[in-house]
Design a protein around this nucleic acid. Structure first.
Ligand code: FES
Ligand code: FES
Lengths: 144, 144
DNA sequence: ACAAACTCGGATAAATTTATCCGATATAGA
DNA sequence: TCTATATCGGATAAATTTATCCGAGTTTGT
């Protein structure tokens, strides 16, 4: 469904969000450990998240990643997925045609579109705050 | 969402189904032309569809691929997806954990599961017959 | 000024997916 | 039997995704 990069990106952002709620900045090393991801690969992903203004990065000693409070319930899963995997998963044709076009639908269009639309709605309405809250409440888990 | 192999596999099976309704056997070359796919790669996919008893293949002159009438409304998209991409897309965890486990859910579980379940239901209830009918009626299109 | 602790970003490598090539084999028909 | 026409299946190559390495630059604290 999502790329590995995107999965890491979502987990990393959730972790950063939780720590930012506690006003703590986290290092790359800490993130990779917490979400169990390859460190250098995670660095690339964090860079692109930073370029998309989803997280902030600071260089140097005591540097690391953080998220502004404004973003807690402003950034959604869609922002992250879009930044890393692009919009194909929630806009593209299920059978791989360049565009999904209801005027000239592919054989799977009618069955596929509504699910894709639900996915899109889910992604754009799910905020990091929500995901972080569940983890803080022990309802869901970042590691397993 | 689906792999290229799976997209080709779905298109190919739909095409074979339509031709089989007309009691015609189709060659690899014809399939690859009709669905606009790389010919040798398509051959591999058709082989695995044949091994999974989704289509039948015949060697030699006048050989090719066909589908038994019984399969028209027995084979679903799920059968094809399962044969080519496996079951991860409709059973696996959205954040890449080995298993989706409601007892120890990942941060995206509650949001993701219902969409994944809808996708699964769609795949297992959509038969080739339906897809073929739409194309025959001009409601959807195999090529674009 | 210096060292330690960080991220940045380019180069490279490994793994997987996608795609091609070709000899072996099977079938139909002349 | 011979030839043309097919798929089969193993080897290989290209492209993309995933992962690693390392020098350069930045910031903090001594
Ligand atoms: S045209 Fe393929 S999903 Fe809409
Ligand atoms: S545990 Fe991740 S989707 Fe269920």
């Amino acid at each position: 469904m999502f790329s590995k990069a995107c999965e890491y990106g979502i987990k990393a952002t959730v972790h950063i969000c939780i720590r930012s709620q506690q006003h703590e900045r986290v290092s790359l090393k800490n993130i990779a450990e917490k979400i169990d991801s390859p460190i250098a690969f995670t660095a690339k992903i964090l860079q692109s998240l930073a370029k998309n203004d989803i997280i902030n990065s600071s260089k140097g000693a005591k540097g690391g990643y953080e998220m502004s409070e404004d973003n807690f319930n402003k950034i959604t899963l869609l922002d992250i997925v879009k930044a890393i995997d692009g919009d194909n998963i929630y806009n593209g044709c299920g059978l791989g045609y360049k565009n999904c076009n209801a005027k000239k639908p592919c054989p799977m269009h009618f069955q596929f579109k509504s699910i894709r639309d639900d996915l899109k709605k889910m992604l754009e309405t799910t905020t990091l705050q929500e995901l972080a809250d569940d983890i803080n409440e022990g309802t869901s888990f970042l590691v397993r």
